[in-house]
Amino acid sequence: MNEPKSHSVGKSAYAPAPGRRFEVGDRVRVKRRFPPGHRRTPTYIRGKVGEIERICGAFPNPEELAYGFDGEPKKVLYRVRFAQKEVWPRYTGPDRDLIEMEIYEHWLEPAMAGTSDEKK
């Protein structure tokens, strides 16, 4: 993806979460899974390919916290950047438009360059 440098990541001062799986710039796919229960991964982004914009750190798993568990061990949280035209087949804005959100590591898998939303 070509983006203007003006919205580069900006270094984060937060703990980089050692033992993490992904690095800034990695191409990733959000897993196309539909489990029941509390999730913080919106349906509209599942199966989509983007790139790691920053590493947010490690946090207790909200999918467990929601049911009264302590959410340990913590899970690594990333911000992932997507091109809007990759997310919405009928997106009417310019190709340069972006959408970014936070995705937990267990919802991500590596994506090959140039792949799009394929069922695996």
Binding site: F34, P36, G37, R39, P42, T43, Y44, I45, R46, W88
Partner: peptide
């Protein structure tokens, strides 16, 4: 405009 599936929660409305 978005997927519907068996477990889609009522709060999961992005894209509607």
């Amino acid at each position: 405009m978005t997927d519907t599936h068996a477990h889609k929660l009522p709060s999961d409305i992005g894209g509607n």
